[in-house]
Design a protein around this nucleic acid. Structure first.
Lengths: 220, 220
DNA sequence: CATTACCTTAAGATTACCTTAAGATAATAG
DNA sequence: CTATTATCTTAAGGTAATCTTAAGGTAATG
């Protein structure tokens, strides 16, 4: 679990980083809002801790900016601005929690954990007659096991997890290949081809549809 | 959205029920923990507000009991027990938030909304009987799916997003074609034609009207 | 009635995707 | 540590969908 901390007071950063690392989280820190924003656009974090008063872009605006593209990553304010109005403003900006300084580290941990609690995705994903068993790392179509390579498996899983929504090529590259920038490659095509072959999907057969110019979509 | 309130102080119940109903939520209330538990086993709520001190079963135990079978429904504590230790205990029992009395009703609303935020009602744009589903990248007219190409889709989406406002040809070129300078082309016409054909729009039919000399306007 | 803007169609150009194969890399076994 | 194998990535040719251009027709405007 990778947490981004955007905070400019070195002491607090140090305190948080150390404490959270002891809890087993991977931590990235930055001290100004602009750098924080750029980080969030380049890579995906599992959770973001935000101070309100920050150089360049303040926490509130940063929160809003992140939420334009990303509506799911939990954002927790951690700030000395403690009035009700400020709290409401923070939450309205898209934050998931608003914790006032001074705070109990123990409580912070618990409030962070809330957001990781229900990330245990079901063990078996389905797409029509295709079954993906995440625990066993196996894929069956019509009851017959099909052997997929790692990348094939990851790609298929990603599409199925986002069943019903278009996945853009860039989103796929980010999620499956961890390539974070605009990049001209045709790997996706090659793997889509492999998957379709192994699962006997015709292109017209709509379990996985190509959306020209955008990406792909999985659907039962 | 259906909220269960488990709280034994009649005044608070009344206050919450009324306020939340005004916000458009459906409210069920009960004043003791056991009844609350039985309700949760019988029906599914979208969110649960819990007091700590309750007759028969206290809020903490109730929370744990609910979490045995149901790990997803958001549970919010709303209690006068305000120490850090109690907060942590509440969160560890499986609650999603812990709000201390006295609380601001406005803040409560925001903290409730957090949990409904990503119940992603798919973003659907409409224009009369035409529905555009952005996530699925599909367009339906009178319930029948119509297949549009990328450009057609972008153009239609742009017009519908600006429903009620005239879009000039230059604005359209900028938004859909990323052409930023005065440019003599008739692509727009070609695509408008294609869209109208595919969606069975007559020119007199006013979902999309031509504003001669200016551009186009979409309207229900 | 002349002019202008828009509609419509079709053909050529372009782009995106599919497919295959070969070279590069990583994992595994000898 | 090297050989072998499996997997990943790059590259390139083919194909089909899509986009753009262009040109003739039609309706609106003054």
């Amino acid at each position: 679990m990778h947490i981004l901390i955007v905070e400019d007071e070195a002491g607090i950063v140090q305190f948080l980083k150390q404490g959270l690392e002891e809890e087993g989280y991977e931590i990235t820190t930055t001290s100004d809002g602009l750098a924080g924003f750029e980080l969030t656009q380049k890579q995906k974090f599992d959770l973001i801790l935000l101070d309100w008063m920050l150089p360049k872009i303040n926490g509130l605006d940063l929160c809003k900016a992140i939420r334009i593209k990303d509506t799911t990553t939990p954002i927790l304010f951690l700030t000395a601005k403690d009035t009700v109005l400020e709290t409401i403003e923070g939450l309205k900006a898209g934050a998931n929690d608003y914790i006032k300084k001074p705070f109990s580290f123990e409580e912070l941990i618990e409030r962070i954990k809330i957001h990781f609690r229900n990330q245990n995705t079901p063990e078996i994903l389905t797409l029509g007659t295709i079954k993906i068993n995440l625990a066993q790392h196996t894929v069956c179509t019509n009851g017959i096991e099909v052997s997929l390579t790692q990348r094939e498996f990851d790609l298929l899983t990603y599409l199925v997890k986002n069943k019903g929504n278009v996945c853009t090529r860039n989103q796929i590259l980010q999620a499956v290949w961890q390539i974070n920038f605009e990049y001209d490659t045709s790997v996706i095509d090659v793997f889509m081809n492999a998957i379709r072959k192994k699962l006997n999907l015709k292109i017209e057969e709509d379990y996985i549809k190509t959306i020209r110019g955008i990406g792909y979509i999985a659907n039962d």
